[in-house]
Simulated assay, not measured.
Amino acid sequence: MAFGAHLVTPHSHDSADKTDTALESSSRGLRVLGLSFAILAATAVVQAVIVAFSGSVALLGDTLHNFADALTAVPLGIAFWLGRRAATRRFTYGYGKAEDLAGLVIVVIIAASAVLAGYEAIQRLLDPQEVRQLGWVAGAGLVGFLGNEWVARYRIRVGREIGSAALVADGLHARTDGFTSLAVLLGAGGAALGYPIADPVIGLLITLAIALVLRNAAREIYHRLMDAVDPALLDQAERVLSQTPGVRGVGAVRLRWIGHTLRAEVEIQVDHDLSLVESHAVAVEAEHRLIHQVARLRAATVHADPHGPRDADYHERLNRHRETTTA
């Protein structure tokens, strides 16, 4: 059999290899966060200065959003740093789930920026004020768009490459920020044409855009907290297992995200007359193929059940126990 080589050859994907890959992913995430934080913070500071002497509430909303987007790098950075720590006897799966907790903090920050931007826009509608230095306001909106779009592309690309839902969500957040920055140009244009109400109206539209980002980010984080995975990943894992030499059948397949890496728990069936060593070799080969062919999968627990003879029930005792506990 092809898996027979594993009887005498050690499995090449040891825990050190997997740990090195996970650490490299976290390092890339930290680099992305550091650079994007610097760019967004600089963008927000420039906009804040212009807000101070222009009085534009639309630009204020965009500035608040950019500050919030920069701040989201802080909890994510802490999460990536924690994710680099080794598993312990208490946290046996490591600290990867800190990314999901960071996602919750990001959702709260986005929500706070939406509330503050909406409040300021409504206040300006009730008490209109002249917007000054419209050229500077328009320029600040353009700067905000360019900064956010660059950060968005960077975060989304790296987030997808390393499998970080929180980083991808943060990138989508930055992209929406870019379009809200362009909306500032509309507010400045409306004010220049003699419609000062355009500025707070654009501020309200920006608030709506932030709320839409909030909904999408909250849904993404909810899926991770509930251990949701793309069903296509399950299909792929089942195909890999069914094509592994020595596997006679595939039982339950479970996948879950631990931070930005996947872990699997799978059940396979092997010939009932194989020795323990031979059955283990099939299981090792199955894990080997899963790690190679399923993106971002770092480890798999493979349980081998005997296949045959006919009418044999190797789980009779467990089945009776389950029936008793669920009755």
Rank of each mutant, 00 (worst) to 15 (best):
L234E: 15
A228R: 12
T324R: 15
D199A: 11
G103K: 10
E99A: 11
A87Q: 08
A191H: 01
G159K: 10
S242Q: 11
A281C: 05
L276P: 01
G34I: 13
H303D: 11
G178F: 09
S275K: 03
D69R: 11
D199V: 09
R296W: 01
L172A: 02
R155T: 04
R153K: 13
R254L: 14
S279C: 04
I197K: 11
R157W: 12
I210G: 02
D305A: 12
I162G: 01
W150A: 13
G4A: 13
E238P: 00
L142D: 04
G147Y: 06
A102Y: 07
I258T: 11
E267L: 04
A111G: 12
V250G: 10
T324Q: 15
E285K: 09
L212E: 09
L60Y: 15
D199N: 07
V240S: 10
Y154A: 02
T88R: 07
L274M: 15
V107Y: 02
A16G: 00
A327P: 00
R289E: 08
T207R: 05
W136Y: 14
S27C: 01
R254S: 06
M226C: 08
A87I: 06
P10K: 10
R28A: 08
W136G: 10
G249H: 05
P128C: 13
Q293R: 12
V131T: 15
L116C: 02
S15P: 00
A42Y: 07
L225N: 08
V284R: 08
I122D: 08
D17N: 02
D235Y: 02
A2R: 12
L60T: 15
E161H: 14
L193V: 09
F3A: 03
R317D: 13
Q129D: 08
G189C: 06
R132H: 15
V302I: 12
L318P: 00
H272R: 06
T92K: 15
L276W: 03
V168C: 03
V253G: 11
A264P: 11
A138H: 09
G141R: 04
L30F: 09
T63C: 06
G251T: 07
A327K: 13
G246I: 01
P309I: 04
H11Q: 09
F91C: 03
G203L: 04
A191T: 13
P200R: 06
R296N: 14
L225H: 07
G4I: 06
V284K: 06
Y119C: 01
P200E: 05
A73G: 11
G118S: 13
R254H: 14
A102H: 10
Q47H: 06
W136R: 02
L59R: 04
R215T: 10
L208H: 02
L318M: 08
V105Y: 07
L60D: 05
A217C: 12
G203A: 10
L186P: 05
L116N: 07
Q123W: 01
K18T: 10
V51D: 09
V107G: 01
E130T: 14
F179L: 13
S27E: 10
G178H: 10
A22P: 00
V115N: 00
A70F: 06
L40I: 01
A300S: 14
G187F: 11
V108D: 03
A79E: 08
L182H: 03
